[in-house]
Structures are given as C-alpha cells and as structure tokens.
Amino acid sequence: MNEFQVSNGIFFPPFQPNLEIDTDYYIEHRTNSYLHQTSLLFYQFQSKEKEQIPVIPDGCVDILFCCQSENSYATIYGSVYHEQPITIRKNCEYFGVRIPPAYTIEGLKPSMKEIFNRNYPLAETVPLMTFIEELFVKEHDFQGKVKLFMDYFGPIIKPNYTSKSLIGHGLNHIYTKYGQTSIQELAEETGYSTRYLRKKFNDNIGISPKLLSDIIRFQFALRLLKNKYAIEDVIFESGYYDQPHIIKEFKKFGSITPQQFINTFNCK
C-alpha cells in the first residue's frame, strides 16, 4: 500500500446551528484533533417546547443521551444528506458526542458506514447501554458526563485510519482543503483511480469523497458566515463559483439561503 504524508493544517469543529438557537442553552467541549478533524465534540443543551430540531449534514456520527430521570434513552445518528428534523422530548436535558468519520466504535452493529442517514437506539448497538444511560441521568455536571463517556466509550472509540492509509490521507486531504477539492485531484495525488477511491470511501465510511467534500465546504461556509464574513468573501474563501452556486448548495444541504442563515442566526 502507498504511504502518504499528512500536511499541516487546521480544521474547525462541525456545526449544528439549530442546536444552539432552538434550545434554552447550549455548551460544548472539544478534544484534540486527529487527521485535522476535531477528535470528539461534546455538547449539552436543554430542549424547549419544540419536539423536533432540524439538523444539517456534517459528515459525523452523533450519540445523543436524553438525561431525563424517567424514561431516559440514547440514540446514535448518522450524518444526514440534507436538512431533516430529529425528534426530541420537550424541556429535557440532552448530552451529545459528535464523532468524525476518521473514527470507529469497536463492536458497533450496524457499522459506522451503515449509520449514515439513519438512526438507531444505542441500546441495540452497544452492550450494557441501559446501565450506562442511568449513569448519565445521575451525573448532573457537564464535565462529569464527558468523563463518564470517556470512561465507558473511550476504549472503544478509536482512529480507524492512520495518516499513511489511503482513507486517512483522503480524509486529511479533504479537511485541510476545507472541502475545496475534487475526486480527480485526490486521484492524481494518490495514484488511484476515481472509481477505486469512490468504492473505498463508500465501503469504509458510507459516503463518497465528492459528497463529503461538498458537505465540508458547506460547513466551512457556515462557520465563515457565523463569524460575520460578508457573503462575497464567503463565496471566495469557500471556493464557490458565484452567488447562484452558493445559494444552490445551501438550499441542497440546509434548505436555506446564505442571507436567510444570516438573518435567522443573527450573523450581521
């Protein structure tokens, strides 16, 4: 197998804007990075009266715990392909963990790639889950929940691809370029055909290199807008051709235009 070198680069954490504005409060904690992705993103929020919250594509897998004293539960969610709602309980505290595609959960059935665009009760995928759910209900401190998660899940959540592997190099290439790349460029860099790369990504991650690149570029553009970049600058920095192009991509992934995002999320 070819060996690949990892270039230096910085990546931003994946972003779910509605979790921040459609909840009573939202906090998060990030761990160190691996392959220029945030290794794990921990977050906590209190739901409002809404029973659904829209989520957008981010290429990650989320584990979400409902920490209600009665009828607690946990669900594992794969990244969606376009905006769609997840069902939550009203006025409930939730604790979540976002896991990027370079990682795997050992023993998880279905596999990480099979979770994309789907969700499953965590109790059906991880042994002793009912016991662990009860521990999250009893632990009220956010950092305490982070430690609890790492105590039980840390040993089985591991990097699935080394920087010298084809998939690891491909992920690094996509993330360090903020999604502004093509499968043809990746093929030229690695020496493998586009067909082979597409098959390897679909078989191992459950998503094609092109779709993952488009999602990462969309996420990058969202971050720039959140940081109050002008739309014209976001188009340039994100590598979109023009305003119709970025509007088309935003509607495809988020059912919203860049200007609507600015207005909705107070990015002025």
Score class of each variant (00 low, 15 high):
3 E>H: 15
4 F>Y: 15
4 F>L: 13
7 S>A: 06
13 P>C: 05
14 P>H: 06
25 Y>F: 15
30 R>F: 14
35 L>K: 14
43 Y>C: 15
43 Y>K: 12
46 Q>T: 12
50 K>H: 08
52 Q>M: 10
52 Q>F: 05
52 Q>A: 09
54 P>I: 05
54 P>N: 08
59 G>V: 06
68 Q>V: 06
69 S>W: 04
71 N>Q: 10
75 T>R: 11
83 E>S: 11
85 P>W: 05
86 I>Q: 11
86 I>K: 11
91 N>D: 13
96 G>L: 03
97 V>K: 01
106 E>Q: 14
107 G>W: 13
108 L>R: 06
109 K>Y: 12
113 K>L: 07
115 I>D: 08
116 F>T: 07
117 N>G: 05
120 Y>V: 05
122 L>R: 01
124 E>P: 00
132 I>H: 12
135 L>P: 10
141 D>N: 15
143 Q>N: 14
153 F>V: 01
162 T>P: 06
164 K>C: 03
167 I>W: 10
168 G>W: 07
172 N>K: 09
174 I>Y: 01
177 K>Q: 12
181 T>H: 00
188 E>V: 01
201 F>P: 00
203 D>E: 15
205 I>Y: 10
206 G>S: 13
207 I>C: 08
220 F>W: 09
225 L>G: 08
234 V>L: 06
240 Y>I: 10
249 E>Q: 11
250 F>K: 02
251 K>V: 02
253 F>E: 10
255 S>M: 04
255 S>L: 02
259 Q>A: 08
259 Q>H: 07
262 I>T: 09
264 T>D: 09
265 F>A: 15
268 K>C: 01
